[in-house]
Write a protein that binds this DNA or RNA. Structure first.
Length: 274
DNA sequence: TGAATTGTTCTACC
DNA sequence: TGGTAGAACAATTC
């Protein structure tokens, strides 16, 4: 389940491999044309043919390919994998896309649930309109967070998951961040105390940076490179730990539902601010 | 068989 | 009207 740290891991790994390459063609071997989200398969293939990838980077959970003309934006959703080498033949049916480069190398987009999508556009305005602040950017600071939470008056977990508010957080890291901050996920955003706001700000930064340093969390569906996996799973405190003792207080971690999402909490440590 | 899974988008509501 | 909450959707597994 790729979130910001997983997407960053993929980009860190692939950028030196694909930057400077020229797209000879792009193929959808299984004819799953829904992967081309914002135009037809034929238009898409025609548009990117012969273009150089000048830069590979990340915005929110999107992998952005800067092309000589225009941009590709790829979203891995739940189960997408972007790999420079093919997987075993038995997984060929999960291949959504294959890039053929002019130097005979390839880039494979495997996605067994086929939720992943790719976009081609001449600018990235549509993405900027859609996405909120980058949590690792300078603009994301304590005063921004304080002000933005106060004016939104929403439940904390759904708000942190809202990509138009902060871009890149997903279910795993929001649970971890709220646990570290001692904030109950059903707390209201305008009722968080000053002390907790500082905790929250620090937790967002440290959790994401740690996860990137460990190449992300491989829970079920994430791998990169030659099927390498992230090591942050070992560092998780609450996600998937239901029934196990809280590392802070020893009370059992509970799994509840918040905003239709599976949510892991320590009911003792995480205070409900209403 | 249907519930669970996730991120995003659409729709309905106040 | 704008912002928010909740449903729907994509496909697959067990």
């Amino acid at each position: 389940m790729p979130e910001l740290p997983e997407v960053q891991t993929v980009v860190n790994y692939l950028a030196p491999i694909v930057q400077g390459k020229i797209i000879h063609s792009i193929d959808s071997p299984n004819h799953y044309d829904k992967v081309f989200e914002n135009r037809s398969a034929a238009d898409f293939k025609k548009a990117v043919q012969g273009l150089e990838i000048t830069r590979l980077w990340r915005r929110g959970k999107y992998i952005i390919f800067d092309l000589y003309e225009g941009y590709l934006a790829l979203h891995l959703r739940m189960t997408g994998k972007l790999l420079p080498n093919p997987l075993h033949e038995k997984y060929t049916k999960h291949l959504s896309l294959c890039f053929d480069f002019s130097d005979q190398t390839k880039l494979y987009f495997y996605d067994y649930r086929k939720f992943g999508r790719i976009y081609f556009s001449s600018t990235l305005e549509w993405l900027e309109e859609k996405l909120g602040i980058e949590p690792l950017s300078k603009g994301f600071n304590l005063s921004w967070l304080t002000q933005s939470l106060a004016q939104r008056k929403r439940m904390m977990k759904p708000l942190l998951l809202d990509q138009s508010f902060i871009a890149g957080l997903g279910n795993i890291y929001v649970d971890e961040i709220l646990w570290k901050s001692n904030i109950h996920p059903q707390s209201m955003s305008d009722k968080i105390t000053k002390k907790k706001l500082l905790r929250l700000y620090n937790s967002v930064q440290t959790t994401l940076l740690d996860a990137i340093a460990y190449n992300g969390t491989t829970f079920i569906n994430f791998s990169f490179g030659n099927n390498r996996t992230g090591e942050f799973k070992e560092k998780l405190n609450v996600f998937g730990k239901q029934g196990q003792p809280c590392l802070n207080c020893g009370e059992k971690i509970q799994k509840i539902r918040v905003g239709q999402r599976g949510t892991h909490i320590c009911n003792h440590c995480q205070k409900l601010h209403m």
